[in-house]
Amino acid sequence: MESEGAYNLSSLILDMLLATVLFWIALKSLITPDLFHAVVLFMIFGLLMALTWVRLDAPDIALAEAAIGAGLTGALLLDTIGYLRRSH
């Protein structure tokens, strides 16, 4: 019961908004024609994921996601795109 009360309209709107944007960015990064843009969108997706983990009361995952998911994975992907372009 207590949780019902704590979960008010403004949090609902915030969660809905974040969820929609999350999904939209993910979809966009899969279908956008330019590979570089796709990876940048993926890194934004990672940051939004970190925000989502904060909303889900999971700060440990938020830290890891921001550093590993968005940061390191993004760096690896961007570097590979650079390699791909240099070798063409």
Binding site: A26, S29, L30, L35, A38, V39, F42, F45, M49, T52, W53, L56, A58, I61, G69, T73, L77, T80, I81, L84
Partner: peptide
């Protein structure tokens, strides 16, 4: 494209993680 497959794998993973915690 292989790089996009890797992106898709990461998005799939994030989705499963959200399900697990949610």
């Amino acid at each position: 494209h292989l790089l996009r497959k890797i992106l898709a794998f990461n998005i799939m993973g994030s989705g499963v993680f959200l399900m697990l915690v949610g």
